[in-house]
Amino acid sequence: MSLLTIDNINKAFGGVKAINNVSFELPRGQLLALLGPNGAGKSTCFNMLNGQLKPDSGSIKLEGVELVGRHPRQIWNEGVGRTFQISATFGSLTVLENLQMVLLSRDKKLFRLWTPAASYYKKEALVLLDQVGMADQADRACSVLAYGDVKRVELAMALAHDPKLLLMDEPTAGMAPKERNQLVMLVKKMVIDRNLSVLFTEHSMDVVFEHADRMIVFARGELIADGSADDIRNDPKVREVYFGSGKSFEAA
């Protein structure tokens, strides 16, 4: 059985159909790329998966458990981690504290009023930060980091409770090409090692074609293609959408 099953979801904002009858599945241990031009509905899809938005209709199941109608908090509890297109971290906390927050939340220790937070999970948090190469900046405030570094912290936070499903909305924005590759390789390694499932969007096609196991393409809220790198490259509909938007597919 697939880890994630999305069945006929819809979402409209006023008159705009942001997501129109979309269905797809995501098996365990797969790195699935979600492609599509600006405004295609990618972020909207992510927001419905983690409970930020409620679909107008349709069903989203994680291992058979219905996620529609649940709060982001509960969906996180089911084992879904996510990063945001415009990254969201806790600016006035240090990088280390950001990670400690997740670990405290995982073990339901947020309401402890006495022992200083600094003494909780320091080692574990540093290990997580080390994975994304941020351990040496652990003591800096998140608000003063370079944007690419914030993205890395956010990824470490999304991974901290050892999720089954990871959602990443443009995880490499603001990074140099080399860094992008490294980051996606890191995620790919976890997909293999931990049998993690990942859904991510990415504007750099090189990265996607090199690492993704499979890709799906959205255009104007509809799913227009689903398959391997070769399938997608040769899909006439995909070519039309990308040339139509004035974007060269190979060079993008």
Partner: peptide, 8 residues
């Protein structure tokens, strides 16, 4: 947003 997304 982030707090929601880490179960707070």
């Amino acid at each position: 947003l982030r707090a929601d997304a880490i179960g707070v």
